[in-house]
Measured scan of single mutants.
Amino acid sequence: EETYEVDGEEQLKKVEKMLRDRNLDVEVEIHNGKFVIRAK
């Protein structure tokens, strides 16, 4: 499992696309105004 923490939606979209391109399962949560992306 990998976890990424990003600020802002633009970064979120980039990271999310990169992970989905690797066929990973992606979950996004918001913690303290930051996006936390978990990939399995």
Rank of each mutant, 00 (worst) to 15 (best):
E1T: 12
E1N: 10
E1M: 14
E2V: 12
E2Q: 07
E2F: 14
E2G: 08
E2T: 11
T3R: 12
T3H: 09
T3D: 03
T3Q: 09
Y4N: 01
Y4S: 01
Y4P: 01
E5T: 13
E5H: 09
V6K: 02
V6P: 02
V6E: 02
D7V: 14
D7M: 12
G8D: 15
G8C: 15
G8P: 03
G8I: 06
E9K: 08
E9S: 04
E9D: 07
E10W: 06
E10P: 02
Q11W: 11
Q11A: 12
Q11E: 15
Q11R: 04
L12G: 02
L12T: 01
L12K: 09
L12R: 10
K14S: 07
K14W: 12
K14I: 14
E16H: 08
E16D: 03
K17G: 05
K17V: 08
K17W: 02
K17P: 01
L19N: 01
L19A: 00
L19S: 00
L19R: 00
R20M: 10
R20G: 06
D21L: 07
D21H: 05
D21S: 09
R22N: 08
R22M: 13
N23T: 02
N23I: 01
L24D: 02
L24T: 02
L24C: 15
L24R: 04
D25R: 13
D25V: 14
V26I: 13
V26T: 04
E27Y: 13
E27G: 03
E27F: 13
V28Y: 05
V28C: 13
E29G: 05
I30F: 14
I30N: 08
I30E: 11
H31D: 05
H31T: 09
N32A: 05
N32G: 10
G33M: 02
G33V: 00
G33Q: 02
G33C: 14
G33H: 06
K34D: 01
K34T: 05
F35W: 12
V36K: 05
I37S: 00
I37N: 00
R38M: 05
R38C: 12
R38F: 06
A39V: 15
A39Y: 09
A39Q: 03
K40A: 06
K40N: 08
K40G: 05
K40R: 12
K40C: 12
K40I: 12
K40Y: 12
